[in-house]
Amino acid sequence: MAELTAVAQTVEEPEQIEGRRRKRPPVLILLAGSVAAAIAVLVVIGPWTTPFDPAHQDLMNTAAGPGGGHPLGTDSLGRDVLSLLLAGARIAVIGPVIVAAGAVLFGATLGMAAAWKGGFVDSLISRVADLMYALPGLLVIVVIVGVLGGGYWLAVAVLLLLSLPTAFRMTRSVAAAQVRLPYIEAARTLGLSVPRIVFRHILPNIFPTLLATFLLDFVGALIGLSGLSFLGLGAPPGTPDWGSLLQDGQSMLTVNPWVSLAPGLLILLTATSITLLGDWMYDRYSARGAQR
C-alpha cells in the first residue's frame, strides 16, 4: 500500500552505527512468520476444516451467540461463523496474492526497464508513477469500482493497476543502483546478452527487495479488497468472505459481536504479521548496499 512504503522512503534513517546483523530473526518476526504460515495453510485446506457446511442456513437459530456447537455463534442467516471464516480465507487472501504478484511482476519489469534504459523511458514512466502515487489510492478505487457496479475481479484488477507505482518505484531504485556497479560493466564487457544480465545477475541481487515489495503490496490489497467487500463493492453478497462478514455482523454487534469481531481481528492479525515480515526484510536486506 502506498502509505506504508512512503513512510519508509520519505525520511531516511541515518546510517546504522552499531552493526545490527543478528544471526536469528527476533521473536516477533518468528511469531509473524508462523501466523503467515498458518493463514497460508488455511487458504489451501480451509474448506475441508469447517465443522459445519458454511452455506448451510439454520433459520431457527440466527444471530446466536457462541455455544450450542457453534464456537463463534451464527450469523444473520443462521450460518456457522467459524465455518464461514475458515472457508472465507481463500476469497480474502487469493485476490490480494494475485494483486501483489501482478504488481511485482509488471512493476518490476517496468522498474528494471527504467533503470536499464534510463533517459527518456525512465523519466516518462517515473512521471506517470509519481502522478499515480500522489492519489489517495483506495478512494480512487472506491469511485471507480462503485461507478462500474462493483465485483470481486473488477476490484482485483483496479487494485493491481494502482499498486503498480509502489512496485515500480522500489524496483527502479534498487535496480538503478545495481546497474552502475562494476560487475554489470564486467558482464557487459564479456558480451552477455541483456536478458541474461537482467535475469541472472541483477535479479538475484534485488530479489529480497522484490519479496518485501510483494509482502507490502499484499497487505495493501488485503485491506483494500476486504474494505471494498465491507462497503458492499467487493465479493458478492452471500459468499463467505471476511470483509462481507464484517459488514454483515455490524448490525448484530449487540446479539453476536463475533460475526464482526472475528473476521476483523483475522484481517488485522494477517495484515500486521505480513507488514512486520515485509518491513523486517526491507530493513535487513535492502539496507545492505543494495540501496543507493
Binding site: 516477533l28 474494505g227 465491507f230 455490524q250 459481536p257 488485522l268 495484515a271 500486521t272
Partner: peptide, 26 residues
C-alpha cells in the same frame, strides 16, 4: 515502533468496529 506498525497496517474499518463494540456496545 511495533505499536506504530500495527496502527499503520490496521484497516480503519476493523479498528472502528472494535472501538464501536468495546466502548459503545459493551
Amino acid at each position: 515502533s511495533a505499536g506504530a506498525t500495527v496502527a499503520i497496517s490496521a484497516p480503519a474499518f476493523v479498528l472502528a468496529i472494535v472501538l464501536l463494540y468495546v466502548f459503545g456496545v459493551a
